[in-house]
Design a protein around this nucleic acid. Structure first.
Lengths: 238, 238
DNA sequence: GTCTATATGGGGATAGAC
DNA sequence: GTCTATCCCCATATAGAC
């Protein structure tokens, strides 16, 4: 029988994933964990701190893996831009594979992560702000090197869209049978990784089709950082 | 001063979007609406029925618009496949434009919709199950006609990814400044529609790169039902 | 560290006067 | 249709015995 703290974390992860932070009561969590109600506040001091601990346990290792894959790709490329598809795969695959770890702790962590993307409050958001920041910085730089001629903002938007496609698998898979008329499911994780990687890679490579007005398709890999406003792009900053 | 019922719907839409179904109390909603607490149960009979009414008011018109655009495109094409990009735009644009209606009712409906994709319970899910079903049926047929040679399941997966990219804009826009290092925002809706449309269109057109192993690229739209594990959506329960 | 018992507050829903 | 007052339940958190 595992450690009390660990048991609480497992149960919390699972119930937060299924019912949300508000929906999962400490009573339900402690009952599922087979521990006493008061144990949560003894070990974690509050419900929100429990959520933080749930993330602390799994998010950092996950992102470390993604960065390690990126490091390996960049080392291998030895200065040259990495092949885009491999970059995309390094970014996506460790996350997608979260859906295939049912033995360990139920569907749980992947679903919780996907759910938190759309339901985090300013306070719970701090849990992954820094993680996302460092990950985005590293990967967007790599993406930009592998996508010469694409403005930085456009790369950011497309990463953002890619994250959306990815998190759909984590947290909105109930929709899949409906969209596919019952003919697709999440059992073939390798296939999902391939499909998603292809989709996102192609999306990243799309022609910049900014409203045809300003057309004169820009192709200046290096010169796009300056202080000036982008020609046809979106207004930047906020 | 508007009708009481309408005032409640507006306030509920806004607060559900910002704080979630559980997070927004009827007390907060009625206070924001400037009506009495008991008015909710008088007019809507329960909190969950109120949520349904919030969706009933806006979701059907939204999807009617998308289907009307599809009808127009198909009529224009007169039997030929519709240009893929225009199809994608008809599917995405009305939804993306939800973010530019702040005058009417705050960020609200778009954000609520995006949030519900990842947090709906089996009971609240029924609110849009049928809507999604008819929409998916019409659009996936059209997509498949415009993407000859792509298996039905693959089309479904890519629509699913596209929905994820779309809903990221609705409900996870807080992430955008972080991913873009402060240089992208949601003020230029036309530009967002263009970017997203390009991204999803390119994604839909990607080479089917199913794991190179079994490669012999399958082309049998009908033949994939077999004894394969179903599994479909995750439990999530309530 | 673990338990029981309880403090304290907020939630959805409703009864019944107006 | 609208209000006040209240019912009843369940939440998080804690005090204090073991």
């Amino acid at each position: 029988m595992r450690d009390t703290k660990e048991r609480i974390l497992d149960a919390a992860e699972s119930l937060f994933a299924e019912q949300g932070f508000d929906g999962a009561s400490l009573r339900a969590i402690t009952t599922a964990a087979g521990v006493n109600l008061a144990a949560v506040n003894y070990h974690f001091s509050s419900k929100e701190a429990l959520l933080q601990s749930v993330f602390a346990r799994k998010l950092a290792p996950l992102n470390r893996e993604r960065l390690a894959l990126l490091d390996a790709l960049e080392a291998e490329a030895a200065g040259a831009p990495v092949q885009l598809k491999r970059l995309v795969q390094a970014f996506l695959e460790p996350v997608v594979r979260l859906i295939e770890k049912p033995a360990e702790s139920g569907i749980s962590f992947g679903m919780l992560l996907g759910r938190m993307y759309t339901t985090s409050t300013p306070s719970t958001r701090n849990i992954f702000l820094d993680e996302i920041r460092v990950l985005a910085r590293r990967f967007s730089a790599a993406f930009q090197r592998s996508l010469p001629g694409l403005a930085f903002e456009e790369v950011a938007w497309r990463m953002f869209f890619g994250i959306g496609a990815m998190s759909q698998i984590l947290a909105a898979s109930w929709m899949l049978p409906i969209v596919s008329e019952g003919r697709a499911d999440v059992s073939d994780v390798d296939g999902i990784v391939d499909s998603l990687t292809s989709f996102v890679t192609a999306g990243l490579q799309a022609d910049p089709a900014r409203h045809s007005v300003c057309s004169g398709r820009r192709r200046f890999p290096e010169s796009r950082r300056g202080p000036r406003r982008r020609s046809g792009g979106r207004p930047e900053s906020s």
